[in-house]
């Protein structure tokens, strides 16, 4: 779905924000790019959608190589949800915001109402169609952003720290919505985040530090080096922390990301006594 090869980018002369990055996002997968603030992760999102131009390397989205000529075509394939819920809400009401993308794609007027209703329903905002953004919570605004993007029929959705400004309830709403889009609708998801629990539940994790990819693979593998995770300024998943410490003390449990599994293992050990 998405190929990135040898990508480089500099905000300032000489200081490489993105330093020779290559990666691959499989169609239908849920990939997370994990890194602390300042690791370059947001820059990647902007490069993929052509808001910034790379100094080196190339990007291919859905088979289309990204260039000045293909910008519009690539943008039709990709939808991106940004971090600030207010600053991407363009319409004066929920329906106007969803309609914005449709207007840009020259969707015929007669089809618009049906599409708006369909996607508002999908994100559970059907009852809020005439609400203004100042009356909506952060989570609701992000849901509208997602509806607006879905209405444009993308093949890839990029979430650029889309939940970091939300409260836990909003974060949960969005994570559940995105997960359901990935699992039920087979939407390819690329999520840029520093939320370790989200990364732990994804299919593929790419670990970023100072503009370099330092590891990538399945969450169990990439996140298992807890010292490295901590050194990167990230949280270690709770179950990992506990299982690691217990193993250090000689308690025979498996290192796991799954809290339930750990509880079961400990209870079994307890009952054996």
């Amino acid at each position: 779905m998405l190929h990135v090869e040898n990508l480089c980018f500099e905000y300032d002369e000489g200081l490489k924000t993105i330093d020779h990055i290559s990666f691959h996002v499989e169609k239908g997968s849920y990939t997370t790019i994990l890194g602390h603030n300042g690791s370059g992760k947001s820059t990647i999102a902007k490069l993929v959608i052509g808001l910034l131009a790379a100094s080196q390397g190339h990007i291919e989205v859905g088979g289309i190589p990204l260039s000045v000529e293909t910008l519009n075509d690539v943008r039709k394939q990709v939808g991106i949800v940004f971090q600030n819920p207010d600053n991407q809400f363009i319409g004066s009401t929920v329906r106007d915001d969803i309609a914005f993308g449709l207007e840009n794609l020259c969707v015929p007027h007669d089809e618009m109402e049906g599409i708006i209703q369909e996607y508002a329903k999908k994100v559970n905002m059907l009852d809020f169609l005439d609400h203004e953004p100042t009356k909506l919570s952060g989570g609701q605004k992000q849901r509208v952003a997602i509806a607006g993007i879905l209405a444009m029929n993308p093949h890839l959705i990029i979430l650029d720290e889309a939940t970091s400004m939300l409260d836990p309830k909003g974060r949960k709403e969005i994570n559940e919505l995105v997960r359901s889009l990935n699992q039920k609708n087979h939407m390819t998801i690329l999520s840029i985040t520093h939320d370790i629990e989200e990364a732990a539940k994804s299919d593929h994790v790419i670990l970023l530090e100072k503009g370099h990819i330092i590891d990538e693979g399945a969450p169990e593998n990439v996140l298992s080096d807890t010292k490295r995770i901590r050194d990167l300024g990230l949280d270690v998943p709770f179950a990992y922390q506990v299982s690691e410490e217990l193993i250090k003390r000689g308690i025979p449990v498996e290192k796991t990301l799954d809290t339930e599994k750990l509880v079961k293992a400990l209870c079994q050990l307890h009952s054996k006594m």
């Binding site: 602390h36 603030n37 971090q83 970091s164 400004m165 520093h194 370790i196 300024g233 949280d235």
Partner: peptide, 8 residues
């Protein structure tokens, strides 16, 4: 701590 990464 809204919007900060875990270390922050």
């Amino acid at each position: 701590t809204a919007g900060l990464d875990p270390q922050g």
